[in-house]
Computed example of a mutant assay.
Amino acid sequence: MPIPNNGDKYDSPALFSAADAIDGQGGDTGVEIPKAVIITYQRDFFEKILAERTGDPIPIVRDFEVHPIDETVGVVVGFSIGAPATGTVAENLIAAGAEALCIVGGSGTLQRSIEPTDAIISDEAIRDEGVSYHYLPPEAEAEPSPELTERLEARFEESEVPTHRGTTWTTSAFYRETVAEIEEYADAGVVSVEMEAAALFAVAEFRGVDAAAVFDIGDLLTGEEWDPGIEYENVQPKLLDPAIAALHDHLNAEGSDADGRDGNGES
């Protein structure tokens, strides 16, 4: 049976929202958090950020909090990996006031031409998980925000990290990435495989906020072999500054657009 089971889902209101859940669990949707938030998953990377550049955490609910990097950009971690966790975290951040979300995460690559020290910017996600189908109909594409993605790419072009832009394959079945799928997607030019992008893009589109994703390379998957990347360099720390700069660029541009509309009294 396809997901969702109920075909009328897209026109039906939810019983409760992230804002309801936060307020009902002792949180506060009225707290002021940075307008842009980086979502990451690797604890060692997060601990490095905490040690060097974040302010006091801002609690949203229970053990979930945002760590501000500066006045407009924060970072979150401390939850599980995958689409369901990412979708829930995105909903909570949006309910608390976030306007732009960016994954800085890890992925595998399906292309031998992509080096272990490169990065990948996603411009579309193949929806091979479940979360996105509860936000977008099956025929819809899961895509990041074009403007934020362009700004992300521009900042990475100025960085020391070689970067590739292309389609990512989001799957929830880590141990069922089959040879047939890998060969098919590699031949089609798909650049990466990960577990979160499609969910973030779908939630962001549904809620009307901006989203993007950039990944480092943790392993190589081909139809003949799996290279688990034991000797790969973790380049995620090098991805942080370009991502922060792109989020600043985006918020500044969006603010300028809003000022222009307000000043003219029209859109």
Rank of each mutant, 00 (worst) to 15 (best):
L110K: 02
A198F: 03
A96D: 11
R207F: 02
P146T: 12
V235M: 13
K35F: 07
Y232Q: 02
P68N: 01
W226K: 11
Q42C: 06
V61T: 03
G166V: 05
I39W: 14
D118C: 10
A142I: 03
D219A: 06
P34I: 03
S132H: 08
E99C: 03
V37D: 08
I60P: 12
P242D: 02
I103S: 04
Y41D: 03
C102Q: 06
L247Q: 05
P68F: 03
G74I: 08
A98F: 08
A98G: 04
L93Q: 08
A36D: 01
V73K: 01
Q42D: 07
T109G: 14
E150R: 07
H248L: 06
R112C: 06
E153T: 14
T170K: 03
F215C: 13
S132G: 07
S122Y: 02
I114Y: 14
V89F: 09
G106N: 09
S267C: 02
G260S: 14
D44N: 14
D28E: 08
A246D: 10
V104L: 09
E177V: 13
E158M: 09
G74D: 08
H164I: 06
Y10C: 01
I114S: 10
L152V: 10
D23K: 13
F46H: 09
Y133N: 00
I126N: 04
L240T: 04
I217S: 08
